[in-house]
């Protein structure tokens, strides 16, 4: 079971309290009608799916119910960082000491 640190409740809590909500930092296009079919495909369907560090959204559904973002290593499933929604994407090199 994953232990996930909710940045709002500020404590590590069991995975059962959380719902995964997909890749993070995918911004909805500002002018949707201007997008080509390829750009819509990239926005809707293409995901980075890395074997390594993944930026992702979680929701503390059975707790404070708020969305937040996380950086997790997808082979070990270890969380490097969780941070509030709306905060900028953290610099991966700083988090991993350059070993990303």
């Amino acid at each position: 079971m994953l232990l996930i640190h909710c940045p709002y409740c500020d404590e590590p809590l069991p995975e059962l309290e959380f719902a995964y909500a997909g890749e993070a930092h995918i911004a909805r296009p500002a002018d949707p009608s201007a997008l080509s079919d390829e750009e819509w495909r990239d926005f809707l369907f293409i995901r980075s799916n890395p074997r390594g560090h993944h930026f992702e959204r979680w929701r503390h559904i059975n707790g404070c119910a708020r969305f937040f973002n996380a950086v997790r290593e997808t082979v070990s499933d270890k969380f490097l960082l969780t941070y509030a929604a709306g905060e900028p994407r953290p610099d991966l090199a700083k988090l991993t000491g350059g070993n990303a």
Binding site: E15, A19, Y20, H54
Partner: peptide, 13 residues
């Protein structure tokens, strides 16, 4: 499992 992973384990819940 609900999250993207390459761990070939998965969670107990």
């Amino acid at each position: 499992d609900q999250y993207v992973s390459y761990s070939q384990r998965g969670g107990l819940p």
